[in-house]
């Protein structure tokens, strides 16, 4: 089994980079099984093809605009996710949508996709998360960890 945890976003723009901050924090907080690959996708698109092909499970962490209050954490799954990736006003989301479409066409698409998103507070320039979003980072990691446990590849908390 191959599980990919993909964080995407621009880490130069505060909360826009939540996905990247989250995958970094994930590796700091947990020991992950060999079957789990953690990818810092940044804002790239088609460069991610080899990382995503033939994944059994793909967990994407990203900044999202879902009309919820700032710093809300959401989880999307199933039919919600492909619709989500069709959004074309966000350049790199579209990149991911292209990657997934190309992989579907060649029969190598991830079998199951979950999106864990955070509504941003700030998109200002800066390499740190806003304080409100930073406070939700552990909640995001908890959701990822729960996801991994459900799939059967649990992450182990590192000893403090």
């Amino acid at each position: 089994m191959r599980v990919v945890v993909l964080g995407i976003g621009n880490m130069l723009m505060t909360d826009e980079g939540i996905g990247v901050h989250a995958v970094e924090a994930l590796q700091r907080r947990f020991i992950l099984p060999d079957a789990v690959a953690v990818v810092d996708g940044g804002t790239t698109g088609m460069e991610l093809l080899p990382d995503l092909e033939n994944a059994d499970h793909l967990i994407v962490i990203d900044a999202v605009r879902v009309g919820k209050p700032p710093a809300t954490v959401v989880r999307l799954e199933g039919d919600d996710v492909p619709a989500f990736f069709k959004t074309k006003l966000s350049p790199h989301q579209v990149g991911l949508s292209d990657v997934l479409a190309a992989l579907r066409f060649s029969g190598q698409a991830p079998r199951h996709v979950v999106l864990i998103g955070v509504q941003p507070v700030s998109l200002e320039m800066g390499m740190e998360l806003s304080p409100d979003v930073a406070r939700r980072l552990d909640e995001v990691l908890d959701l990822v960890s729960a996801e991994l446990a459900t799939i059967g590849v649990p992450a182990l908390e590192r000893r403090q």
Binding site: I8, G9, N10, M13, E16, T43, D62, A63, V64, R65, V66, G67, A83, F84, K86, T87, K88, L89, S90, P91, H92, Q93, G95, G117, P120, L123
Partner: peptide
């Protein structure tokens, strides 16, 4: 690109 990529669930226009 060189900047933002916030996902927008409300907008589906291509």
């Amino acid at each position: 690109a060189c900047a933002v990529h916030l996902t927008d669930k409300e907008q589906k226009t291509v």
